[in-house]
Design a protein around this nucleic acid. Structure first.
Lengths: 246, 246
DNA sequence: CGCCTTCTTGATGCGGTTCAAGTAAAGTGG
DNA sequence: CCACTTTACTTGAACCGCATCAAGAAGGCG
């Protein structure tokens, strides 16, 4: 499991997997379930658990005082979330179940002890945060520079890759998505109306369609071409390495 | 030093400060300087150092293949940067000196060893990443939901707070800023033309002005009112705590 | 002085929002 | 099983915030 893109230094792979396995011993005995729409962690509240997502989709979302809302992260199975509980007292944003989900809970203080005594667990936790940072960087680029088309293409492809990686099969050309167009808008920084219009265009052009909460990628190369400018530069750089400067 | 907003769990304060002090023993003997505009870490390159910023401003920036660019982080004195070197092989974005800077270097592998053997150092490193994540969350909200006015007001206030915290004095109502309007645009996801126009309005309305690379906040309350919707919700929540839900 | 970067301002246009209305599908309670 | 409601999707028309294009002014710096 662990992570999709495996951008970590190769010498860490074993330690990471080992750290992940060790989390099993720290989880509260029985997994817990939340129905779609449930708030798992309240915005602004203190919280004493960290979670490992087993099934379903979870989102971190911030509500602005005037009613606007923005999603900050979408978690898929295998992700650790609310890991900030270990370090900060209050969560500045809510964590909600986007679909029905099952999670394993880890008591914050126990994980914190393990963090101190077991470097592999510390590594696993830090890795999760580093990975989230990577996603956030891409998110900022997407929101700051991407057009609506580019953002949507990029997001649907990212889910495709992450789901594919989590399930072991390669990229998923068809996958369930629990997000409504309204939620997609709040992920992408767009209105649901515009999301709808762009999706229509993509559907009519035969690139991708969403029907009955299922994404079907019909023309992956074209979709990738569309999302290309927003693609994580790490991969591009690998294709044509450059010399480092002082 | 360490961080501004002190949102960490109180029981960690001592360990964090201690971890920060321990970094002193890991730094390469002589601090290094970079001239404004220099690239410190190349986009897409591997890199074996982590840095602690002593003086000046540093930015992490991503260049898209078609020429667009987006800043992903602005580092101020006290920040650790390129800390990802410890965990990932290649940096997906460049790190550049926004002004003349002096930095302390830490060899990646030495820090990694220390990370394993000393929980306080692990905590200090993880804390830096958690803090960056906090900033990125706010950044995403800003780009996703904020108007140009809100984003600019929010950014200038954030710098004010962070500089104030780093220098020990409270919020800085006047501070030097090395960013050009063009760079501000690439931080804010706006064109320099629009940044210019909004800054003009803010100046004419007596809220804030930038002249000769110096920001002067003339009407802090009004500026805060303008940035209010984007303000980190943690503080808001503290004012009126809510009950937690299951 | 002449060049270059940054700042400034105007004119014009487009991408995305806003407002509004209508359709479709899935509950829900009687 | 059928009115009634609710939630999601869809589409149109009008508007506006910000981008784009263009050109000039104001400052460093060789």
């Amino acid at each position: 499991m662990l992570n999709a893109s495996c951008l970590h230094r190769p010498e860490l792979t074993a330690a990471l997997a080992s750290g992940d396995r060790k989390l099993d011993n720290l989880t509260v005995p029985y997994p817990r379930t939340f129905a779609a729409g449930t708030t798992i962690v309240q915005q602004g509240a203190e919280h004493d658990y960290v979670y490992r997502l087993r099934t379903g989709w979870v989102g971190r979302v911030r509500a602005l005082p005037d009613g606007r809302t923005q999603y900050l992260m979408v978690f898929l199975p295998g992700d650790l979330f609310a890991i900030k509980s270990v370090f900060v007292a209050a969560h500045p944003d809510a964590v909600v179940a986007l679909s029905d989900v099952t999670v394993e809970r880890l008591a914050q203080h126990r994980l914190r002890d393990a963090f101190d005594t077991d470097p592999e667990i510390a590594l696993r936790c830090t890795w999760q945060i580093v990975e989230e940072e990577r996603r956030l960087h891409n998110w900022v680029v997407s929101l700051g520079q991407g057009s609506a088309e580019e953002r949507i293409a990029h997001l649907l492809l990212e889910f495709s890759v992450r789901i594919g990686a989590a399930t072991g099969t390669g990229r998923a050309l068809e996958y369930g998505i629990p997000l409504t167009q309204d939620q997609l808008g709040n992920v992408l920084g767009l209105t649901s109306v515009h999301v709808n219009r762009v999706l229509r265009r993509l559907r009519e052009d035969g690139l991708v369609s969403i029907r009955n909460r299922v994404v079907s990628i019909h023309d992956a190369p074209a979709l990738e071409r569309m999302a290309e400018p927003l693609r994580d530069a790490t991969l591009q750089a690998r294709a044509r390495p450059e010399t480092a400067a002082g």
